[in-house]
């Protein structure tokens, strides 16, 4: 029995990864979208069903409604980023984080428009905002707005402002709590639309929910992680400035995962330190007792991966992600990787090899140079165990290179994709620009959109 087939006897446990599972994911997706909309829209419905004061003009009340909506959307951000595995499963957590970015921008616009309309209608209100006369609840509103503005600027332009990711995460959380807390103080203080006791209860409940979520994410979850440590077994140098960390659970059974999923990794810190980073699992899902991450030296954190030494303690929060062939059963698969985007695809290939899979597989793997091609030797070895064809696409090929070079173009895809391309599932992982370009090229080749799966691993 080969190395890859050795572990195929291990029972593989994942939920919803058969044909019926696909349907379940769609239903579950709609269910969680419904829950999110209820959370965000409830305060507006309450306003609609039980209006408070008599009308003060359309634009006045419109601006008040936007203020309420923006605040409830801010509250819902805590739910979005709490990483509830069941809620994230139908979408993939990368999509939820991108949704968080965009919906935060929408909420910010609503909240900015709220005082803008009021000041436009009643410029005299500016007088009430002078520091000598400002009321405490108005001050809370102003500080909330300033905090929120800082939050948005530092999030949208973090890299341009050269803010370290770890520091940004801590300040992002603190600013978010401050902005929401002060917005609720502002609403309660103004009191016009929350006069009845049950409306006050509603806002108190929203505040309590946010507080509970905060306790769960920042206290309970890290405590659980602390009790489930991992040990770094090996740090292996790979081609292309990449390193593979081999981790084993210590005193617990670890977790099972679908091939292609990822986890948040904490190194050199306690889980309370908020210094965790998402990485794809590059090892086989059939060997959950030995989890591997292959990490390329790209940023502040990843450049220090080589300094990790065997015996160090690590913590893993996972598995997450919807990028897995187990979610979309097919007769054959096509994988397209760019750079270190090979990591989750390697996890899938290793899993398929461990399962003794005989389906037809095509890997198109784009990289800068032949020498730097991560997993070069192992891919050649995998060909002996799988019905796998590998097409390397090099940016800077060596002089005697006979293979493909340049970008993954329509012509290149036409040369290598199987004839019955509609019968395959396509998995793309790489830089955002490459993924978008290849996705469009696949569409032009006639691949249905629902058969193209991608993951954006630039969550930071």
């Amino acid at each position: 029995m080969s190395d890859y087939q050795r572990t195929s006897a291990i029972r593989f446990r994942t939920k919803g990864c058969n044909g019926v599972g696909n349907m379940n994911y769609v239903q579950r997706g709609f269910f969680w979208v419904g829950i999110y909309l209820c959370l965000v829209l409830t305060p507006l419905f309450v306003l609609l069903l039980a209006p408070g004061l008599s009308g003060s003009g359309f634009w006045w009340d419109f601006s008040i409604a936007l203020g309420f909506a923006g605040t409830s959307m801010m509250g819902a951000m805590f739910v979005l980023t709490a990483r509830f595995r069941h809620a994230a499963a139908p979408f993939g957590i990368d999509l939820i984080y991108y949704f968080h970015r965009w919906i935060a921008l929408v909420a910010f616009i609503f909240i900015i428009v709220h005082p803008a309309i009021l000041l436009f209608l009643e410029p005299v209100f500016l007088e009430d905002l002078r520091i000598s006369v400002i009321s405490w609840h108005m001050l809370a509103g102003v500080i909330s707005l300033i905090t929120l503005t800082i939050l948005m600027v530092t999030s949208l332009w973090r890299q341009q402002l050269k803010i370290h990711y770890d520091a940004w995460r801590i300040w992002h959380t603190l600013f978010a709590i401050t902005a929401l807390g002060l917005a609720i103080v502002h609403i309660e203080g103004v009191g016009n639309y929350v006069s009845s006791p049950w409306k006050r209860i509603l806002w108190a409940a929203i505040s309590a929910c946010c507080l509970i979520l905060l306790l769960y994410v920042r206290l309970i979850k890290p405590l659980v992680l602390l009790r489930h440590p991992y040990r770094v077994e090996q740090v292996v140098k790979e081609r292309g400035d990449a390193w593979t960390l081999v981790l084993r659970p210590q005193g617990h059974s670890g977790f099972t995962f679908m091939p292609g999923q990822f986890a948040w990794l904490t190194l050199r810190n306690s889980p309370f330190a908020l210094k965790e980073h998402p990485f794809s699992i590059s090892s086989s899902a059939m060997q959950p007792q030995e989890i591997q991450f292959t990490i390329k030296e790209l940023g502040d954190f990843t450049r220090r991966i080589k300094d990790v030494f065997p015996g160090q303690t690590a913590y893993l929060d996972g598995p997450y992600g919807a990028f897995s062939m187990d979610r979309h059963p097919s007769s054959d698969y096509v994988f397209i990787a760019g750079g270190i985007g090979i990591a989750p695809i390697m996890g899938m290939l290793r899993t398929l090899a461990d399962r003794g899979d005989s389906r037809s597989l095509l890997l198109i793997y784009a990289y800068k140079t032949w020498e730097g091609l991560t997993f070069q030797e192992e891919l050649e070895k995998l060909k002996e165990h799988l019905h796998l064809r590998v097409v390397y696409v090099l940016d800077t090929p060596p002089d005697n290179w006979q293979g493909e070079s340049g970008f993954i173009t329509d012509e290149l895809l036409a040369r290598h994709l199987p004839v019955a391309m509609n019968q395959h599932e396509y998995y793309l992982c790489g830089p955002v620009v490459m993924t978008a370009m290849v996705e469009k090229a696949l569409r032009r080749q006639g691949v249905p959109l629902h058969q193209i799966h991608s993951e954006i691993f630039n969550l930071a």
């Binding site: 999110y36 609609l48 419109f62 409604a65 919906i103 959109l449």
Partner: peptide, 30 residues
């Protein structure tokens, strides 16, 4: 596609909320 989907979902939610806010303002002054 995933980036686009995230944008569309956020935009749709935003428009829905905007409509509800307008409805509230309308009925408050009806």
């Amino acid at each position: 596609m995933r980036l686009f989907l995230a944008k569309i979902l956020a935009l749709t939610t935003g428009i829905l909320i905007l409509l509800l806010a307008a409805m509230f303002a309308f009925f408050q002054n009806y």
